[in-house]
């Protein structure tokens, strides 16, 4: 995720599920009095999660905020511009780094699609 979108990383803590919402919406988290929606990133991107999420990556785009439930922040560093096309509308693209293919999340598109406004519909 581009660092300019990242506000902070926190412990996942308590999440209150909202019945009737999409499964990738884990629920709500109380971040020091502010109610934050929590998105299950693995489910959203349709990738198998190997471990249950433990951390909350709090991101912002266009005035909208959400916490992404993730396993762990592996590294913060510079990446070249994405060179590879990806199938998912929720990624800007992908970049090869040290032998790994790294997908870059399009935070704005993720928010739009969850709100039901974007062209991409979230995976069920």
């Amino acid at each position: 995720m581009p660092v300019r979108h990242v506000l902070q990383v926190a412990h996942l803590g308590d999440v209150t599920a909202v019945p009737g919402s999409l499964p990738q919406m884990l629920g709500l988290h109380n971040l020091r009095g502010q109610i934050l929606p929590v998105v299950d990133l693995a489910l959203l991107l349709g990738i198998p999660a190997t471990t249950p999420p433990a951390r909350l990556l709090i991101a912002e785009a266009g005035g909208r905020q959400a916490g992404f439930a993730i396993g762990e922040v592996s590294e913060v560093g510079e990446l070249a511009d994405p060179t590879e096309e990806t199938e998912s509308d929720l990624l800007v693209g992908a970049t090869l780094a040290g032998g790994d293919l790294i997908g870059i999340i399009d935070v704005t598109m993720v928010f739009d699609s969850l709100e039901g406004r974007g062209s991409a519909r979230p995976r069920r």
């Binding site: 909202v18 009737g20 919402s21 709500l28 929606p37 969850l114 709100e115």
Partner: peptide, 12 residues
Amino acid sequence: KPLSPLFGDVEG
């Protein structure tokens, strides 16, 4: 506080 719009069209 209103439910975040990220929950889409959840009703109720």
